[in-house]
């Protein structure tokens, strides 16, 4: 079965033998975009988080067939037009990653949250960011999220 969608601004299609199989594999292996990670395959850890029509979606539990005609963004497409996305920039500024494996999922979840809550409180962050990081980079992530929110704010002013 052939599924067509827009991913990171480009029209693509991918062939899967079962439309119910996870979109994650179509992205990672079908389109060779490896930034979206497999962690649990059960929508628990959040490493596979992407955006589908602007909303955070855990792609390991999202049937490929439902991607038909949708607008998808992965970590590779978060920064656009040669400009580093504020969340990614904040992550760099705060030197967040350790092993780095879970980070794309967190970055995508954060970007989705900041779209809807531009200035999150600590409590908002605690409630909204529920991915799993084993290295324990949460402490720096929180700082990076606040920093990204500020950077977003500055962009708006300009």
């Amino acid at each position: 079965m052939k599924i067509s969608f827009t991913i990171n601004g480009e029209a693509k299609s991918v062939e899967v033998s079962d439309g119910n199989s996870p979109l994650l594999w179509a992205i990672r292996d079908g389109l060779d975009l490896k930034g979206t990670k497999f962690g649990c395959g059960k929508a628990a850890c959040g490493a596979c988080t992407i955006h589908v029509d602007g909303n955070a979606v855990r792609s390991c539990s999202f049937p490929a067939k439902l991607a038909e005609g949708k607008e998808i963004t992965t970590i590779e497409g978060l920064s656009k037009d040669g400009k580093t996305h504020p969340v990614q920039q904040a992550w760099i500024d705060e030197v967040v990653p350790q092993c780095g494996y879970c980070q794309p999922g967190f970055i995508m979840a954060t970007a989705a949250m900041l779209d809807k809550i531009p200035n999150p409180t600590d409590e908002d962050i605690d409630k909204n960011i529920i991915n799993v990081c084993r290295c324990g980079t949460y402490y720096r992530m929180r700082k990076a999220i606040h920093r990204a929110a500020k950077m977003n704010g500055n962009t708006d002013v300009q």
Partner: peptide, 10 residues
């Protein structure tokens, strides 16, 4: 690591 480069065993 922030850009999602394919650097891991997976």
């Amino acid at each position: 690591k922030v850009m999602g480069d394919p650097i891991f065993g997976m």
